[in-house]
Structures are given as C-alpha cells and as structure tokens.
Design a binder for these strands. Structure first.
Lengths: 342, 342
DNA sequence: CTGTTAGCGCGTTCAC
DNA sequence: GTGAACGCGCTAACAG
C-alpha cells in the first residue's frame, strides 16, 4: 500500500463517524441518500465533516458503485476551428450533470484514436467520438464495451448525431448554377471522414440535378496549407468555381489564388463549409453553416441520458444546414469560361 | 454492492489466478513488477489473462496506489483560438506519459473555474490552469491540495509558464513610432487576465520610451463582437493606431472600422496579439506572436515531471515573443493626424 | 431510522 | 520465487 497522503492524510469517513459519534454508514448516507436518515443527524454529520475537513473520496466511491462520473470526448484535431465550439458545448453540457470530460486528440490518426479510446474505456462511463477516423468494425467493437455516441459518423445500431450538410451543399450548387457557373470543382477532405463522403455525394448529385459538371480533387487533411497547395490541381480543371470540404481549405485556396493573381470572386468563386471563420476572410467567405456547437450539445445530452437511464438507444439525430451567402461567389469570368466552353 | 457488470462481469485478477493456477499476488506482479517473479510464469499469466479477456481495473488500482494517471486542464474559453493549439500540445504531451487529461471550460467566470477545479481535485494528480481568472488566494489554496502549474499567471511559489509579450509589444510600439504615429490606443482584455496586465504595462512603458501618448480603452472579454463595439471609443481618442489585447478584438476592430468607411492601414493602423489568425484577415494582421502551443507543452512537461519525481518545484519559465509585421500598419493619415496635432 | 458486516479489485507487506 | 492476509475508502445488503 502506498501513501495517498501526499500532503497530509485526508480524513476519511471513519474519522467523521468517530468524531460525530455515529457509524460509517450514517456518514455515507448523510452524503448520498439523505432521505434515509434523521434530518438533524444529517446536518450534524455534515457539520462535523466540514470541521475536520472531510471530503468524499471519488476513487473509493467509484470502486464501490461502478460509476465515476467521467466521459471522454475524442476529436481528430483540437486546433481545427470546427471542433472547439463543439468541445465547448459538450463540456458545458456535461458540467450541468456534474460529469467530468476527458479530451482526446487523435491527430487525424486511426491508430492514435484507437489507443486513446482503449485508454479511456475503463476510466469513463461513456464515450463521444467526433468525426471518428476508425473503421466501422473498431467502432462497433468499442461500442460493445462502453456506451458510445457518434458525431458525424453513421454506424447502424450506434446512437449518432449527424450534421446533414447535403442540404446546404445543394443550396450552394444551386447558387453557383444561378450565377451561371457550369463547371465546378470539389476539394475533398480526409478519406475516412463521413462528412466528406456525404459532401462529395451531395456535390455530385447536386451537379446532376442542376446541370453542372464537377471535378473531384483528391482528399487531404483539412488545413490552410493543404488548401493553398490544392490550387494548381483546381486550375488544371475547367472549373470556374470551387467548393471546399471546409473553411480552412477554402481559406487556403483563396490565398493560393491570390498568390497567382486570380481575384475572388471576379475571376473565380469559392465556397467553404462549416462557417467557422465568420466574416474573417477577405472577401468574406460564402459557406455552408453547420453549427457544430449544437451537435456537441445534442450528442452529450444523448450520452448522459443513456447513462442516467441505463438504456442503450439507437438514436439517429440529423441537424440541417444552409448556405450563407457572402462575398466569394459571383458570375464566372468571361475569360475563364471561354477557356472551357460548355 | 452494484453491478460494475453493465454488459458482462469483467474478469478479475482472481479469475486469472484460478485459471492460471497461481495466486492473485502473482497475477498482480506479472502486470507491475515483472522482476520479482519467474520470467516464464509472467508470460504464462499474461497469456491466460489475454485469453479470458482480463484487463486491470483502473479504479481499483487507483484506490490502492493513490495514482490514477489523470491531470486536468482548465481554460477560460475553448473556442478562443488562442487556446486550442495550447490544449492540443498539452494533451499530446500528456499522452506520451500515458496520462489522460480532463478539459474544463471556465467560461471566463471565476466561480465556474473554482467549481471546476474543486471537481477535478481528487480526480487528478495534477492541475494545469491556463490564464486563470481566479484570485491569487484561491490559486494558492488549490495549490495546497494538489500539484498545480500555471500558464500566464504569476504567483510566487507556484510553478508557472509565462508568455512574455512585453518584448513583442515593445517592438510593436517602436514599429508604430517609426512609422510616425504619436498617439495610440490600447484596447485591453479581461480585468483578471495576467496577460492583459502585462501588455497594458508594456504599452505604457513602451509609449514613454518611444515618446508616444497612449489611451487605454476599457477591458472586455476577448471576442470579435467586443472588438467591433470598441471602435467608437477608439475614435473618441486622438489615436492614429490601436493595439488590441488579442487578435479576436483586433479583427473586430477592423470590421468596425470598415463599417464606417475607415480603411486600414491607410487611415488607421491596427496591431493584434497572439497571432492566431495567421494571414486570414484582410489586410493581413500585424500582430505579436505568442506561440501558445509551446507554452502548453512546456507546462504539461513541467507538471508531469513534478508528478514523476514527487517534488514541488518553483519554476518560472518565460517564453519570449516578437512582432510579426504584415499589412495593417502604415504611416498615420495626414487627415487624422491633423485633428490632433502633436 | 441506525449500526454491522461484507465486499468492490487491486497492491503490498509479511512469511514460506 | 510464491502465497496468504490485510488495507485503500466507500457503498450496500442485512439486521435490529
């Protein structure tokens, strides 16, 4: 046995019991089921406890009850602006139920994510996986050992909250079509991203529906730099407008375009996704709004409900999206349209 | 007693012991002090353990050893872009030592922060408070019960990592002076922010040193909106340039200025702090770089070192900063300078 | 209403 | 090298 007493041996229930002239069980009850004990006894015990500086030991309680009031939240990249609002909302929601939340950064890496999840299982009552890069098999595996809620990942039988960007993407394409664009490009995101698969599909269907031709540009990890480096590929297509997997890539694209003297939106139109940059870019970015905070709140509520009721639901919540028109879209330039006549 | 067996009763050390024909102690040793036991016995036990799906129970181990491998990280606002890189770095550093990290969002609120810290103490071995909004007294109080490391908060006797923006701010003022500005404004941040106090002081000293006059604009919570709403106050001063507490406020100021037709940097110069927006604004923001990620990494390393060596250091690490010149600073406009002659 | 008695699962002194 | 026994601090049956 060791010394839990780093500073000074913390008083235990037994100490309180002795000092108050009652049994340990009474002390325990005074802190939990106050109904099953004399009201006056409760206040006396609580007073004594405070006097001698007793504070219930979380670990011991957890060992006994099997509940420790912790959940974990795993995201691909904390520093990607899509996630912080989600993290914030989820954390504050958990806080309302007195839950503590572990944060894990998978670094867009399935192996790292798997390692984190394994570390968390056993320390938490529930798990919240955001935009998981894991395979369906691994997710199901983990779900079998620990209550699990997914955000932006659609695995049958596992409760999930999905941000349905299909609607917003379709609006974006319609918007582009209305402006006169006929050929567009889509710069895709990570291979294992559900959101990217959904957006890519939505782009292709929307293109058909609204009579456009679309080129898909290879998937990349979402970042400013990766957007910037995609510009040459984009210009190799006959596109007069581009839809990016997310705002970070869109912002990078705008910089890359500016670098070679192509001005947005006069010469080229750009549409982002997620609306995390606000009107911070110049020109202000036209983008698909996805309110990630709401997803975080909904998913955490779902998870906590499951834990409280000890029942495994099979929810499938879908949050809708819409296009936010700002200043990066305009009719195609005559020049570039001429390059690739319809 | 309850059912830790949500799904199926997890196998325990006793199960392994029985199946392997050894005692519980041997199983325990096989998982911890492999030296004190026969090498062949170890592999056999480990094999049996894997076969029956045994996995050591974190909670029980923690109760016995007093160590649970958790630390907590508390920030004022997860969604403020200054923090995510710091969080990310700290989390990944902890990960290297197999530590799990709780994340807390104080919402810029001392009471909320205190509540979070109280909740975390007892669940963690150590605490990392970033830009704490707590009083020195409360911080010392908590430090007395749990190993604590501070970022951007200078309390004697408590290990801390400080991002010294004084250097960068002085460079900014010199830069402004060189451009010909004589009157500037500083839009301050939260009252309880150490960084703000330091920057404010640096601005005032720098102003004296370089022969400028400075007006301080009341403190506000760092946000785009609060920057935007500060513009009228700024223009009520004779300033021809403004230094903002952080990039968020600076960005808001730029928008507010644009709203009323004042162009940056031709009519007015703007300098931010933290360099979290990259070149995302237009014009690209001149700002003081503060690499928050490095602070997160350093602080977490410090904390983990303390925990590993069980010694309380009194470190005071200082990280330096520098001005990043981009496009929001230029000589003062003749017009506005005329309004308030030197 | 309250005290007594068992554990929760694991680490760790002791003997052997 | 290995096993038996105790303790970590608390909760939960079982009496009374």
């Amino acid at each position: 046995m060791t010394e839990n007493n780093r500073r000074q041996r913390m008083p235990t229930m037994a100490d309180v019991a002795r000092a108050a002239g009652v049994s340990k069980s009474s002390v325990s009850r005074a802190f939990t089921q106050q109904g099953l004990i004399g009201a006056d006894t409760v206040v006396r015990i609580l007073q004594v406890a405070k006097d001698i500086g007793f504070v219930p030991n979380h670990t011991a309680r957890a060992l006994s009850t099997g509940r420790h009031g912790n959940v974990a939240l795993v995201v691909p990249d904390v520093a990607n602006p899509f996630f912080p609002p989600l993290i914030r909302a989820a954390q504050m929601q958990a806080d309302l139920s007195d839950f503590c939340v572990f944060l894990g950064n998978s670094d867009e890496n399935p192996r790292q994510e798997d390692k984190l999840v394994n570390r968390f299982v056993g320390k938490v009552e529930g798990l919240l996986l955001v935009a998981s890069r894991l395979t369906d098999e691994r997710i199901s595996f983990h779900a079998g050992k620990c209550p699990l809620v997914l955000i932006n990942r659609d695995v049958a039988g596992i409760p999930r909250v999905l941000i349905d960007s299909a609607v917003g993407v379709d609006q974006a394409i319609l918007h582009l079509a209305d402006l006169g664009h006929r050929r567009i490009a889509y710069v895709s995101g990570p291979q294992s991203s559900w959101a990217d698969q959904q957006r890519r599909a939505a782009v292709q269907q929307g293109a058909i529906r609204h009579g456009l031709v679309v080129n898909i540009i290879g998937g990349r990890v979402p970042s400013y730099e990766n957007g910037r480096s995609a510009v040459s590929e984009i210009l190799a297509t006959p596109a007069t407008a581009v839809i990016a997997f997310d705002d970070l890539i869109a912002q990078g694209i705008m910089t890359g375009l500016a670098d070679i003297g192509i001005s947005v939106p006069a010469d080229f139109s750009v549409v982002g996704c997620d609306d995390v940059l606000g009107a911070a870019t110049y020109p202000a970015l036209t983008t698909v709004s996805t309110r990630s905070g709401e997803a975080g709140l909904a998913a955490m509520s779902l998870l906590l409900d499951m834990l409280a009721s000890r029942t495994a639901r099979d929810a499938r919540l879908s949050l809708d999206t819409h296009l936010v028109r700002r200043a990066t879209t305009a009719p195609p330039s005559a020049q570039r349209s001429a390059i690739s006549p319809i």
